[in-house]
Computed example of a mutant assay.
Amino acid sequence: MPFLRIAIGQPQETYQPDALKAALAEFFGTLIFVFAGEGSGMAFSKLTDDGSTTPAGLIAEALGHGLGLFVAVSGACNISGGHINPAVTFGAFVGGNITLLRGILYWIAQLLGSAVACLLLKFCTHGMTTSAFAISSGVTVWNAFVLEIVMTFGLVYTVYATAIDPRKGNVGIIAPLAIGLIVAANILAGGAFDGASMNPAMSFGPALVSWDWTNHWVYWAGPLIGGGIAGLVYETVFIHHTHEPLPGSEF
């Protein structure tokens, strides 16, 4: 059972060279992802006079986020596992694939990476607003909450199937692409309703820099619950640990 494999970890794990390198990879990966994703929305808004809320704007943001995440995961997967998302890290933790202390180290790196990316965007665009994620009119906070759970479940389930599952074989080669595509697809599906975050770090940076925390809890609670459920479901139903556990460097 996944709960039996959950581990707190040792304090010294947080300052070992490999853990610090992994955290640094998460920092840069998240910075790259948020800069590309948030920046695509800002660029489209500037080019079309706030047209980021149009269908074309939604497609542009889906491409920006999907391609940015593909590159970010590809760059970090051999060092940290390429989480680039606190919900993915949490899903890996509840499935017993990362220790709590290492997960906290990843969270800190991811949140810092997002904040720095948004600060850079604000500077490079001469003060343009890094818009915080917001719920659309006609959509309740509970609609958005469930939507974030469902979309993040799909994301973390994809991560497990293509990157964590020890039987992934050659499928692991396309893991970064599959992860980027599911995020792009979910943005097309849910972006018009609540922005389709699926990633607390992605929501944190824009909210911090713009200092807009309206309904911010939705973009933490929804993804963490969805990611946790995906980790439990995949580990319990599809992974049978009849072999040695994965090395720490894997995920």
Results as ranks from 00 to 15, higher is better:
103 G>D: 07
101 L>K: 11
88 V>Y: 04
110 Q>M: 10
112 L>F: 14
100 L>Y: 09
84 I>T: 08
89 T>Q: 13
105 L>M: 13
111 L>D: 00
90 F>G: 02
108 I>V: 15
112 L>R: 00
99 T>K: 10
99 T>P: 09
109 A>I: 02
88 V>W: 02
96 G>L: 11
82 G>T: 01
77 C>Y: 10
108 I>T: 14
103 G>C: 05
101 L>H: 09
76 A>V: 06
83 H>L: 09
83 H>D: 09
95 G>F: 09
88 V>E: 03
90 F>E: 02
93 F>K: 01
104 I>F: 13
103 G>S: 07
86 P>K: 14
106 Y>K: 08
94 V>T: 11
104 I>Q: 03
89 T>S: 15
91 G>Q: 12
92 A>K: 00
116 V>K: 11
84 I>W: 04
109 A>E: 06
99 T>V: 09
98 I>G: 10
107 W>K: 00
90 F>M: 11
92 A>V: 06
78 N>P: 03
112 L>A: 13
90 F>A: 09
75 G>K: 05
84 I>N: 07
82 G>P: 01
94 V>L: 07
98 I>Y: 08
116 V>G: 12
87 A>S: 15
96 G>H: 12
87 A>I: 13
94 V>E: 05
94 V>P: 07
107 W>P: 02
104 I>W: 04
97 N>E: 14
76 A>H: 03
86 P>A: 14
89 T>V: 14
78 N>L: 11
90 F>R: 01
91 G>S: 12
113 G>I: 03
110 Q>N: 11
109 A>F: 01
78 N>A: 13
110 Q>L: 10
105 L>H: 05
95 G>I: 09
93 F>E: 03
81 G>C: 06
102 R>F: 00
77 C>I: 13
113 G>N: 04
108 I>H: 06
83 H>M: 12
90 F>H: 03
78 N>K: 14
81 G>I: 04
